[in-house]
Design a protein around this nucleic acid. Sequence first.
DNA 1: GGGAGCATGTAACGAGTTACATGATTGT
DNA 2: ACAATCATGTAACTCGTTACATGCTCCC
Lengths: 194, 194
Amino acid sequence: MSLRYALIALLTGRSMTGYDISKSFSRSVAHVWHAPDSQIYPELNRMERDGLLTSVEVPWGKKGTKKEYHVTDAGLADFRAWMESPLVPQRQRDPAYLKAAYFDFADPAAVREQLRQQQAYWEEQLRMLEGTRATLLDRSHPTLAARLSTLNERDAELAVRYKVYAYDGLIARARTELAWIADGFALLEELHGR
Amino acid sequence: MSLRYALIALLTGRSMTGYDISKSFSRSVAHVWHAPDSQIYPELNRMERDGLLTSVEVPWGKKGTKKEYHVTDAGLADFRAWMESPLVPQRQRDPAYLKAAYFDFADPAAVREQLRQQQAYWEEQLRMLEGTRATLLDRSHPTLAARLSTLNERDAELAVRYKVYAYDGLIARARTELAWIADGFALLEELHGR
DNA sequence: GGGAGCATGTAACGAGTTACATGATTGT
DNA sequence: ACAATCATGTAACTCGTTACATGCTCCC
């Protein structure tokens, strides 16, 4: 159900086509929420059917058209209601921790390799998060900039601060993962030598 | 697919019935992996069909019976193969961060209430994780103890250390969440006053 | 003319959730 | 006798993934 609200959240910034949204998802927003095309297009259709969005056909080239989606008042009301509804805590279900608990079943070399891959992943993740955080702070982030132009300075300040806050949380999480992976290397060395 | 390996992991400790497993899941193991009964029983059946487990009917009372599952050699081989296969990084998809990025759409009082709920959840989580970590360290954790009794001291040491390592990661994660929530309270106060 | 990228999906499947269903046993 | 808990599921549904499908446009 959150995909729906992630889409509204994005569209409050500016109106977009399904394709734009899909690109936004795989670029910056993917840090907060990931979704493939095959999930986005059908969901946009359902949301339009439910009255949360409206779309206008925009000509594209000579023959083509594309649909630009806009959030309706009902959509915004729904979004606000969700924002204020209690958050159901996420179940813990992370294969990385499951595996770590049973590393003694695997070859130490294979474990080391997996730690290296995880490390590369989280370092890349951290780099992207810090990059996006910077574009939020200096207000150059395209979707944020579009939304800020419709707000007064006080509201713009709030929007920026909360987004930076969310990214600070994601950055802290990435650093925690990296610290845990570093501990993993140290543990491997202690138990099996280098 | 990880549910399957979480089940094998548990059953390497000791043989259990579906019910025992379901209880283990909702008690300690739930920190690493959660699954409801309705997912566990069918999966056990599929795993038996696939030759990863065998079961023996154990009498229970006068009329009842229960099925005790054991990991087969094929099951153990499958588990080891999974343990050494590369880990596919989890997509980021956490409603808490999505919401936080858009807190400016919600009433500050509602935001404060949500932070309080999240705080209570993570504090409880942390308390349980630290409790379980202690029972792993002193080897009183029932499933771990059962498995240790089949191992020599060197292998027992490895099994304990890796499990503690996994819990250390989960504990660090919980602390990171709590620190982020504390920052959220501070931010709310700064932006909206107390 | 050809390749990169724009634009929009469908189909099949797997994983996970929620609600429901049923009966036996053990302890008070 | 009654409650708690042991024991094992099914059914319907939602959400997400993977693979495939199709055609246009813009720029070189």
